[in-house]
Design a protein around this nucleic acid. Structure first.
Length: 510
RNA sequence: GGCGGCGUAGCUCAGUGGUAGAGCAGGGGAAUCAUAAUCCCUUGGUCGGUGGUUCAAAUCCGCCCGCCGCUACCA
């Protein structure tokens, strides 16, 4: 049986436009999904938009639209972003879809039937003007002695009826889960934080609201809509056909990875598994919280207005170079800085100079001096074996890094071979062999393009379009590009097409 | 305040007991197939400070300094 692999991004909240941070999450998940497909796994890759809640309701009002029309618009922008980033998702879910409302209602009822939901009261400081609750620490007391929200609106202590989920009952079981499955929460820093949070004790979770209406109605009590937790997290089940547990897609449950931003790791690592335990459903295998990008050293924020839009970057630098930069620049899980200088440096040094130029110098040399066909290997020399061993062991090293979600390390491993190839071609100097030993020259060139083939195949998940172009230039059949074909090798004397550059150097416009 | 993390070459970081490492940047040289790209050599660090454990510490322990994260209803 083919091994299944289910990976998700968070559903993106439609209270603002997509930016590079969203694209980052999507690309990382996309690379994992493509990698697993090339390994021969049966992949389901889900992304989508989260469209309910008070903030959307308010943003819509501000825009003079009803919440559905507003959500339709922003959701379409996320869909366009995902398309322009060449994301290979299998489904794009929207929480306003009927299938999702049905799934939420079903999960709710299941939790309720299990005695995990009860009616109580939610209390807090409420600003009528903002129609929002605020935490004690957000408030300030004015000269007039009145407590005010950060928005300046006066607050008062309010109680509203709310349904609660018995989260407090799950602390021990959650801690046992984290102990048993050490990689359930990654990276380790997030795991520490979550564990320390749970050790501190859990309170029951308020899971409904009566203070706004833009949400999924609570079954049997239409005065309530579901508050964010159940609504948003359930999407991962909705997309598989839940509550129809016989649905074909349900075979993908449990998810292999919920990829999320680190700010929402906790919800995925605590609330979600607790809800699933309560419902008697299997738990996801991993929750990975990735880091954040700063932009030119500054935090991305609405007030600074420095959130980077995706399309202008694609237009200026190209899609694949952008995808590459996002995953190459920082260890996956860390924070990093998105600077124009760093981007251009990566593109020029690693893509144009290292890899692009390697492909170009090798392929154009074959085109001009080796008959534009796949050269034939001769008697191997020690230097050849060193290179071949490096290439032969590469897929395993890359797969090991990918298993740990260490995308940057996977790229670093591949680049070790790229650099080794540049050293090899210099040391072997086929341009000299051309005059002295054409048989040896052919052998050297063959070893080089076999390495390029391995590099091209392994890099497909990161830069699908450009690697397709490279593999075309190497004459690799469309059917010989998955990982099972890594050991196959090129065909002696097969004709090679005219090569052309893969990654142009970026020259700053004057 | 509590819990946790980090502080290693100019920059980004790897290294968790046994003579300090990588990439980029800097310097010198070689080559000229190639997108003037590449290759070789190389400068550079009292591994935040301090005290201790040890035959031996960047690595373990204590204290100090600095930075950061978490400390629940923000998707």
């Amino acid at each position: 049986m083919t091994q299944r692999y289910y990976i998700t991004t968070p559903i993106f909240y439609v209270n603002g436009d997509p930016h590079i941070g969203h694209a980052y999450t999507a690309v990382a998940a996309d690379v994992m999904a493509r990698f697993r497909r090339l390994q021969g796994r049966d992949v389901w890759f889900l992304t989508g938009t989260d469209e309910h809640g008070q903030k959307v309701e308010a943003a819509a009002r501000l825009a003079g639209l009803d919440p559905q029309a507003f959500s339709d618009d922003i959701s379409a922008r996320f869909r366009a972003m995902v398309r322009s980033m060449n994301i290979s998702h299998d489904d794009f879910i929207r929480t306003t879809e009927p299938r999702h409302k049905a799934a939420c209602a079903a999960l709710w009822q299941r939790l309720e039937a299990a005695g995990m939901i009860y009616l109580g009261h939610y209390e807090g400081w409420y600003a009528t003007r903002d129609e929002a609750f605020y935490g004690e620490d957000e408030l300030s007391i004015g000269a007039d002695g009145i407590k005010r929200a950060p928005t300046g609106a006066p607050v008062e202590w309010m109680r509203e009826p709310s349904y609660f989920f018995r989260l407090s009952a799950f602390a021990e079981r959650l801690l046992a889960l984290y102990e048993e499955n050490q990689s359930f929460i990654q990276p380790a820093s997030s795991r520490n934080e979550v564990m320390s949070f749970v050790r501190g004790g859990l309170r029951d979770l308020s899971v409904s609201r009566t203070s706004f209406t833009w949400g999924v109605k609570v079954p049997g009590d239409p005065a309530h809509v579901m508050y964010v937790w159940i609504d948003a997290l359930t999407n991962y089940l909705t997309a598989l056909g839940y509550p129809d547990e016989q649905a074909e897609r349900m075979a993908f449950w449990p998810a292999d990875v919920h990829l999320v931003g680190k700010e929402i790791t906790r919800f995925h690592a605590i609330y979600w598994p607790a809800m699933l335990m309560a419902a008697g459903l299997p738990l996801p295998r991993h929750v990975f919280g990735h880091g954040w990008w700063t932009v030119e050293g500054e935090k991305m924020s609405k007030s600074l207005g420095n959130a980077l839009a995706v399309q202008p970057l694609i237009d200026e630098f190209g899609l694949d170079p952008l995808r590459f930069f996002l995953l190459r620049e920082m260890p996956f899980g860390n924070d990093g800085d998105f600077s124009r200088r760093a981007l251009i440096n990566r593109l020029n040094v690693e893509l144009a100079n290292d890899l692009g130029n390697l492909a170009q110098r090798t392929l154009s040399f074959i085109a001009k001096n080796a008959g534009a066909i796949v050269p034939v290997r001769g008697e191997p020399q020690p230097a050849d074996w060193a290179l071949r061993d490096l290439a032969a062991g590469l897929p395993e090293r890359v797969a090991a890094a990918m298993d740990r979600m260490a995308l940057q390390e996977a790229l670093e491993e591949i680049w070790k071979l790229v650099r080794a190839c540049n050293a090899y071609i210099d040391h072997q100097a086929p341009w000299t062999l051309r005059k002295t030993d054409p048989v040896r020259m052919a052998s050297v060139l063959r070893d080089l393009i076999e390495c390029l083939r391995v590099i091209g195949i392994l890099l497909q998940p990161f830069m699908p379009d450009t690697m397709a172009k490279l593999l075309d230039q190497l004459g690799v059949a469309a059917t010989a590009r998955d990982f099972s074909a890594l050991t196959e090798g090129l065909v002696d004397n097969a004709p090679l097409p005219q090569p052309s550059g893969l990654f142009p150097r970026f020259v700053e416009p004057v």
